[in-house]
């Protein structure tokens, strides 16, 4: 019964988390071959392309924290979500909206009552890398928190697949010897890398 439960959990967890694993695998390949993409696109950040410019007549008290200004601006242009914000020395508020598919930069210049919205040039490698690096607990947005929980669950699932995989292997008596050789070979190679590089 325990063995059956372990097998089913191994299977169904893997089926549910298949998209996460595909994403983490493809993004790892992209990051491992970053030099290829640098050669293709050049070094430096992905360019931002001007999407639109509009008049923004928000009134903020001089001591309003940039994060409050950012939330109001994002809500008013229907772009609310995870972001970072800073105030430039010239007083402009720069908001980086961390949209996964299309990150945007919003620059609000109070002196001119102007809001410029720029969108990141779409690139598959940058999209995958953003996905891989996405964290969520600190943003204050519930969807980001849920994403962070899903990442924790993938981590737990990975550890569970190791433990359940070992258990299932040990139950298959004919595979014990070649399996031990595989484990020993892998451990030896991993240990070698650990102490040499």
């Amino acid at each position: 019964m325990f063995s059956k439960l372990l097998r089913r959990s191994h299977l169904y967890l893997a089926l549910f988390f298949t998209p996460w694993l595909v994403m983490y695998t493809l993004s790892t390949l992209v990051m491992n071959h970053r030099a290829y993409f640098i050669e293709k696109h050049g070094r430096g950040p992905v360019p931002m392309l001007r999407e639109r410019e509009l008049a923004y007549h928000g009134s903020f008290a001089p001591d309003t924290p940039p994060r409050d200004i950012a939330r109001q601006i994002l809500a008013s242009v229907d772009l609310d979500g995870a972001h970072s914000v800073n105030r430039r020395p010239d007083g402009a508020i720069v908001i980086n909206r961390q949209d996964l598919v299309a990150p945007r930069r919003l620059t609000y210049t109070p002196a001119e009552s102007k809001l410029v919205i720029e969108k990141m040039e779409p690139r598959a490698n940058a999209f995958l890398e953003r996905f891989h690096r996405r964290r969520g607990y600190a943003t204050g947005y519930w969807l980001d928190t849920l994403w962070a929980v899903s990442v924790d669950l993938v981590i737990a699932a990975m550890i569970f697949w190791v433990v359940s995989g070992l258990w299932m292997w040990w139950e298959l008596k004919p595979t014990r010897r070649p399996g031990l050789l595989s484990v020993a070979g892998g451990l030896a190679l991993f240990g070698f890398y650990l102490v040499t590089i």
């Binding site: 981590i155 990975m158 550890i159 697949w161 190791v162 995989g165 070992l166 299932m168 292997w169 298959l172 595979t175 070649p178 399996g179 595989s182 484990v183 070979g185 892998g186 451990l187 991993f190």
Partner: peptide, 15 residues
């Protein structure tokens, strides 16, 4: 199975 066993240290490390 065998791929999992051989690459177990990497799988565990990444997890």
């Amino acid at each position: 199975l065998y791929l999992g066993l051989a690459l177990l240290p990497w799988f565990l490390m990444y997890g």
